[in-house]
Structure formats: structure tokens, C-alpha cells
Nucleic acid binder design. Structure first.
Lengths: 119, 119
DNA sequence: CTTACATTTGAATACTTGCTCAAATATAAT
DNA sequence: ATTATATTTGAGCAAGTATTCAAATGTAAG
């Protein structure tokens, strides 16, 4: 991004506007975190898992059946969702039950759905 | 997903629950589309572009300055956002001004922000 | 017509990511 | 203890992606 960008920085069209927008934008760190949250929901397998857990608590094997993806792949994705604090788990004997850890996720998904319906 | 999954399909823990969830889940096609929308917002550069356009209409060069990424890279990402109907553009002489094409995006991003603040 | 500038585009590259496979844990049942 | 079942984990591979670079458009100005 270096050179090409410096050229453009010199050639800003409307400096006032750029400064104004820059001042109003959130911190870059905040933007990255938001992007990461979207990234967690940006994969069909993961989104499907979350949509299922939106309805009911499920064990890994049943999630695999619902989403129709191998248990191993599901487990990998569940770890990612766990790290993102989107899902939590509960052990019961040999089995591990997963459920949503956060209820805002529902709102985010529903808003996205509305967007698509109206477009 | 084939073999490993078939094994697990045979070994469903709670068939009733799996059927119930399956019936309530949206169509797979719908899930994919929603995932794609999230994917568009899942990259820091693209999210930053959208956050900037949430505030004001901007030309490509000024977007490049605000986001601090080369004009070329910005242009590539703008095309993607255009294809997703998230942004639209308007020509004025040599310059091209971009703005948001959809207002639901604001809601989606704000909801995500709230999620992160409260976690 | 030539030059300058804003933007777009295609190819190449480096990086990321989702899945599979095999092996490791962990817990319950025989 | 041994076996069976549920889940996790790490390595490796194939596919996807964000950026760069060079070149192509398109438009305005000299």
C-alpha cells in the first residue's frame, strides 16, 4: 500500500471532507473486532450452526446431522465460535451440548435477513 | 463430509430434536446469501469503506486516503461491494463518487457494535 | 492531438481458511 | 482392563482472497 498510497495521499480531492470522516470513524481496533464478528458468521457452516443453536441446545453429533457436515469439521468450527464467545458448551457424560452464549447474535442475523428480503 | 458424516447420521443422538430443528431452519440457499452479506462486511478494509460511506459520499481517491489503502485495492473492493448492492456510484467528470446503496447495513453494523460493547 | 489525472482491470503472489484424515482424549459400558 | 462412543486436535491439502504491479480506460485540460 506504500507508494501508490502516498501518491494518493498527496492527491486528496477534498481534504476537509477526509478529515471530517476520519474524525468521526471508530478506532481501527474497533473496526477490526467488528469485522471479526462478521467473519465468524460469514461461513455457511458456521452460520448454519448458529441458526440451529438459535432454536435449541444441541450436542456435537446432532449439530453434525443438522448441518450435514462431518463431526470433525463441526468441532473445528465450534472451537472458533467458542473463542469468539458466540457459543458456550456444557458437558454431560460423553456428550457435549452447545448453545448460544450471546443473544445479540440473533439480532444481527435477523437484521441481515431483513436486508436481504427487502432487496 | 461423506463417510464420517454418514456414520454420524446413523448415530444421531436425539432424532426428534434433529428433525424439529431441521424443519425450523431457513432454506440452505437463504443461509448462503446471509453468509455472503456477512462476508462482505468481514474484511477490515471493506468494513472501513462502508463505515466511511455511512457518514458521507466519497470519491475513490478520498476513500483511499481515509482507509489508508492503495487506490487499486480500494477499487477492487468497491467492485465487490457494488456487486453485493451495498454501495452505488455516481460519475462526475473524471471522478466517481461512492455512497451506500442500502440503509439496512447501518442497522447490521450498529447491532454488531452493541454486541461487542456489551461483551 | 497530447498530456494529465481518476479510476478500473487482469495477472501474479502471498496469505488465509475450511475440510479431511488419522490419532489422541475422555467418559461410559461390558 | 477392554471396548465402544463422543468429541477434540494437529497436520496437510485444496480452494479462496486481499494486495500489488503494470497496463488499460475514460475524461478533462492545455
Amino acid at each position: 500500500m506504500a507508494d501508490n498510497n502516498i501518491v494518493c495521499s498527496v492527491e486528496i480531492i477534498d481534504r476537509e471532507k477526509v478529515d471530517r470522516v476520519n474524525a468521526a470513524l471508530p478506532q481501527m481496533k474497533e473496526t477490526s473486532e467488528t469485522a471479526n464478528l462478521f467473519k465468524a458468521l460469514a461461513d455457511p457452516t458456521r452460520l448454519r450452526i448458529v441458526q440451529a443453536l438459535l432454536l435449541e441446545e444441541l450436542c456435537v453429533c446432532d449439530i453434525s446431522a443438522v448441518v450435514d457436515v462431518s463431526v470433525s469439521a463441526i468441532s473445528h468450527q465450534l472451537r472458533l465460535l467458542r473463542n469468539m464467545k458466540i457459543v458456550k458448551n456444557r458437558k454431560e457424560g460423553k456428550m457435549v451440548y452447545y448453545s448460544l452464549d450471546d443473544d445479540h447474535v440473533r439480532g444481527i442475523i435477523e437484521t441481515a435477513q431483513i436486508h436481504l428480503d427487502e432487496t
